[in-house]
Design a protein around this nucleic acid. Sequence first.
DNA 1: CACAAAAGCGGAATCGCATTCCGGTTATCG
DNA 2: CGATAACCGGAATGCGATTCCGCTTTTGTG
Lengths: 219, 219
Amino acid sequence: MTSTASAAPVDQKLRCDAARNRERVLAAAMELYREHGGAFTVEEVASRAGVGIGTVYRRFPTKNALLDELARPFFEQLLATAQAARAHPRPAERLEVFIRSMAEQHAATGVRSGRLWDTALARPLRDQYQRTVELILADARDGGRVRPDVDVYDVGVVIWTVGGLIDATGRAAEVIWRRHLDLVLDGLRPGGHTSPTTRPIQQSDWEALVVAAPALRLG
Amino acid sequence: MTSTASAAPVDQKLRCDAARNRERVLAAAMELYREHGGAFTVEEVASRAGVGIGTVYRRFPTKNALLDELARPFFEQLLATAQAARAHPRPAERLEVFIRSMAEQHAATGVRSGRLWDTALARPLRDQYQRTVELILADARDGGRVRPDVDVYDVGVVIWTVGGLIDATGRAAEVIWRRHLDLVLDGLRPGGHTSPTTRPIQQSDWEALVVAAPALRLG
DNA sequence: CACAAAAGCGGAATCGCATTCCGGTTATCG
DNA sequence: CGATAACCGGAATGCGATTCCGCTTTTGTG
C-alpha cells in the first residue's frame, strides 16, 4: 500500500463554510482521540462536530486519513524534539537524549512516527528530520558514544521497536519499555555498560505484553 | 482483557460427528491460514470445511479462538526449540542460539508466542517453557555471556520486540530484524562486541517498516 | 429396536462500522 | 439577482463477525 490520498490539496481555496466544518471535524476527532484513543466511530466524529457523515468523508477520504491529519501537529513536534536534542550541550549525549525523548513523547501523546512519513505534506519535514538525525548520530560518533557501525536506520529501528512496546504496554507497564530501552542503549555504546536507571521488569508488567500480542499475524 | 474463553473443555466427550466436523474446520482454517495468513472469513472456513457457520461458532466461540487453536501446534514447537537450545553443546552460547532460533521460527511460521500463553491448555507448556528459559539464561550467565543483570523478562521482551519487527517486515526485509537482533544481542553481552554478520539496513528495507506502522494507536 | 433428550446443524438475521450515493442547499461570482 | 459549482445530511451499501432458532442426528435407555 502506497500512501493513499493524503496528498489532499491542503486547506486551500475551501468555501468558507466548508473550511469551518473541516476545523470542527478535526476538533471533534481530536477530542474523541484523547478520550478513546482511536476507538471511535466516524459517525461519532460527525455528530460531535455537528455535521453529517458525508461531510466528514468529503474532507477526509478515509478514517485513517483523518487520523493521519490528527497526528500531523504531533509529528511536527517530533521534528522539534530532534532539533532540541541536537541542541543539547554535550554533543556526545545527544543521540541518547534524542532517542529517549522520542520515546517519552510517544508515550505521552500516543503518536508514533509511522505512516505519516509517507504523506505529501510530511515529506519536507521528513527530510529535515532525517538530516537532523544524521547530525545527531555524527555527534555521538565523534564523541565516541556509539559503535561506529551504527547508522540512522539502526536508530530508526530502535525507535520503531520501542514504539511497539509503548503502544502495547502504555501506561500499564512503563517499566517494560524503559528497561528495554536502557538495555538497548547500553548495547549501542562502543565500550562497556553503565547501569540502567530502571527497576527490573516484573511478572505483573509482563502480563500486559503477553495479552497485547496476538498469537497469529492477521494481515 | 483476560484470556477470553479458550478454557474450552478440550476435545472431550464430543459427539462423534461433532468431533469430525471440528477437525474439518481446523483443517480448513489451517489451509486458509497458509494461503492468506489470517485474512480470511469465517464463512470461508465454514464452506471449505463443508459445514455451516453456526457449526464453526459452536466449537470456537470467536474467530480469534480459532486462530489460537491453529497456533497451538506451532506453540508446542516453540517449547521444543527452547529445549533444543538447552541441549546446545556450548552452554555459554545457548541463550543466543535460543533467541535466534525463536526469531527464525517466528519468521518461518508466522506464529508469535503471544496470547496463547494465557490459555488453559497452554499453561503447563508455558511453565515448562519458562523454566527452560531460566536454565538457558543461567547457563549463559555462568559462561559469562550475559550481563548479570539480564533476567528472563528482558529476554522475553527482546523476543517480543524482534517479533514485532518480523511481523511488520516479514519476507520483505529480513535484514531489518536480523540486524537489529545482532545489535541487541551484542548489547546483552557483558564486555565489548563482536561484529554482527548482517549487512546494514537500506532505504528500501526501511520503507517496509514505515508503511507497517500506523501513525496513531488504534485500540 | 423404539424413543425422548441431548447435542448438533445450517444458514438466515443482526450488528457494528466504514464507505458510497444522491437529492436538496448555499456560498460565490459576474 | 441568477447560475452553478461546491456543499450538505444522512439513508443506503457492503462486509465481516457473531447470534439465533427451528429442524436433525446421536446417544443412552428400557
